[in-house]
Design a protein around this nucleic acid. Structure first.
Length: 437
RNA sequence: GGAGGGGUUCCCGAGCGGUCAAAGGGAGCAGACUGUAAAUCUGCCGGCGAAGCCUACGGAGGUUCGAACCCUCCCCCCUCCA
């Protein structure tokens, strides 16, 4: 089975330039393909996971992926898919971000000798000479046709800056450069990149008289129509410092019912035969599928140990529901023991020890007791005391799973559990753990 | 450069001298129902322990007992013309 079939089957493909030829191409032993990543931030987020996974699949099938960090194009700003001009970052910021992305990408793809290649287009773009570039490259572009491109047409209504208008040329030039120096035959990317990718293909045809290809990924949205990885609380980053493995795990476990199978296909490596079975699941067993999704996705991004930590913390906070042995046999998520009845035996480790944030609190403050709403504010569970008061009055505040009777009820020593911790909870999902010292 | 139209709380968007912490919608938060899902219903949704006070309607001044609303200057955005 070729990667192309894998892409098809798992939902990675939105558009391709030439299906039969690309299929044939990818059946060969080692093809070089590239994807660009914008260094607009110091970390990638879930939105970049589809491209990342595609590179990983390519590599698993013996091809050579090139991850191109847009250190040079980042200085310009891609207008595609954006309604407003992007904030222009400084050279230093871009360089810093590009470095960070390199590190991050190497968690998914093997860049060691002979493996994938990691490049930064700043290396060649910043060397360009304006006049030469116009004469050699610019002359191959028709402004009329560029204006017809979807990405520019949208922006024409809002205002398109000249600097951004050049983005397409630079990206096309990247492809040309990679074709010449790395024999890169295909570019992949989000569907909003289609125009830029095709521009590269045209440029290569004109200058080198060779045919190259491109493949775009669908823009992944949830069945609610929301962009992946953006929650109201902010972006879900791939960097453990910015989004903890636990939060990452939680993001996935909160996947909507209708998205579970699709996401398992895109964001895990579990075999499709197992994923297809999700259709038959409902209720509790569908939630098991979500746990598997969360576990596998977390494992890919943060490693097995972190995934296990997130799994355990989740089990402790939300109660342990183990995944049946028969479901997703390929997943390494912890299972009930052989009898199939008992719950997973979890080490009763302190929650704060399971790699999650906990806040210290001094014992003597608990002697007198602290009014609940004050503590909720202090721990950032609520943005203001007023909000905390309202929350608790309405029944949304809990200590150790006990709902407060009054907003100014005092939290004191009697609320400390045997592990020396106090668990504050807001609603169903937000926890803060206080460890007494 | 000229002419016109705008900038209101997280977003959209009403308000055009007191009754405005500012309609309505969206988002968000919580409760109920559930499955840490969705949908639905209910409540909340600037800050301060309450009556009250403070901070807010692009910025700075001014008129007025009183200004988001009127006047002046400035800044920013959009449309048309050049």
């Amino acid at each position: 089975m070729s990667v192309y079939d894998v892409f098809r089957e798992r939902g990675f493909i939105e558009q391709v330039t030439d299906e039969p030829q690309i299929r044939e191409l990818l059946e060969q032993k080692s093809v070089t393909c590239y994807i660009g990543f914008d260094p607009t931030a110091a970390s990638l987020h879930i939105g970049s996971l589809v491209p990342i996974m595609s590179l990983a699949h390519l590599q698993r099938h013996g091809h050579r992926p090139i991850a191109l960090v847009g250190g040079g194009t980042g200085l310009i700003g891609d207008p595609s898919g954006k309604t407003e001009m992007r904030q222009i970052l400084t050279r230093d910021q871009i360089d810093h971000n590009a470095e960070c992305l390199k590190k991050q990408l190497s968690r998914y793809i093997d860049f060691r000798e002979g493996g994938a290649v990691l490049l930064n287009n700043a290396d060649w773009l910043t060397q360009l000479n304006y006049i030469e570039f116009l004469r050699d490259i610019g002359r191959h572009f028709s402004v009329n046709r560029m204006l017809a491109a979807e990405s520019y047409r949208v922006r024409l209504e809002k205002g398109l800056n000249f600097i951004e208008f050049n983005y397409m040329l630079l990206q096309a030039y990247d492809f040309l450069h990679l074709f010449r120096h790395y024999n890169c035959l295909m570019q992949m990317g989000g569907n909003d990149q289609w125009g830029n990718m095709v521009a590269g293909i045209d440029l290569i045809r004109r200058m080198e008289e060779k045919t190259t290809y491109s493949l775009t990924f669908p823009l992944i949205t949830t069945s609610q129509g929301n962009k992946m990885g953006k929650t109201e609380k902010g972006t879900i980053w791939l960097d453990a410092e910015l989004t903890s493995p636990y939060e990452y795990y939680q993001y996935w476990i909160n996947t909507e019912d209708g998205d579970v199978a699709r996401f398992l296909a895109l964001f895990t490596f579990l075999p499709m035969e197992e994923i297809v079975a999700v259709k038959a699941l409902s209720d509790a067993r569908l939630n098991m599928a979500k746990a598997v999704l969360a576990f596998e996705a977390t494992k890919i991004t943060h490693g097995a140990e972190a995934a296990l930590g997130a799994f355990e913390k989740t089990a402790q906070l939300f109660g342990c529901r183990s995944v049946e042995t028969g479901l997703f046999p390929s997943s390494t998520i912890p299972r009930p023991d052989v009898t199939g009845e008992a719950h997973i035996v979890l080490p009763s480790l302190s929650l704060s020890a399971s790699g999650t944030s906990s806040l210290p609190i001094e014992r003597r403050r608990l002697d007198e007791g602290i009014p609940a709403f004050e503590l909720f504010h202090e721990t950032n569970l609520c943005a203001s005391r007023g909000e905390a008061r309202r929350l608790i009055t309405q029944g949304g505040g809990y200590v150790n799973d006990r709902q407060f009777a009054a907003f100014d009820e005092r939290i004191g020593l009697r609320d400390v559990d045997e592990r020396g911790e106090i668990r504050l909870r807001k609603g169903k999902k937000r926890y803060v753990i206080l460890s007494v010292r």
